[in-house]
């Protein structure tokens, strides 16, 4: 494990940013942006998750092996979503008899 000690002010900045982002994403839910509601909500969620992984979970200060394991976890999640949606989105085109 990394012996790097993260300064407390880094935790505080991350913490404040996470709280602000929660207020922002909740407020935007009251405004109708059409399809952009989903885009904005997910962008903010990914941003928050990245902050937690990098600083609270110390990945910014971890070894390359640990980083590779973390990235592989999320990459394979995206692989699953990508290929499942490739299937679901093209069924109407390829299903026989349609």
């Amino acid at each position: 494990m990394s012996d790097h000690i993260v300064p407390v002010r880094v935790y505080w900045s991350v913490f404040i940013t996470l709280l602000v982002m929660t207020v922002v994403t909740t407020s935007i839910a009251y405004i109708d942006l059409g399809p952009f509601n989903l885009l904005v909500a997910m962008t903010i969620a990914v941003f928050k998750a990245t902050l937690v992984v990098l600083f609270f979970m110390h990945i910014k200060y971890s070894t390359n092996l640990t980083k590779a394991i973390v990235i592989s976890g999320f990459v394979f999640l995206l692989v699953m979503v990508f290929f499942t949606m490739c299937d679901l989105l093209t069924r109407n085109i390829t299903a026989p008899g349609r």
């Binding site: 909740t26 935007i28 839910a29 109708d32 942006l33 509601n37 909500a41 969620a45 928050k48 937690v52």
Partner: peptide, 15 residues
């Protein structure tokens, strides 16, 4: 982190 994704996906779907 799981909750960070659950909150927008379950609560914030629709304006």
């Amino acid at each position: 982190i799981v909750w960070i994704f659950l909150f927008p996906l379950l609560y914030l779907i629709d304006p």
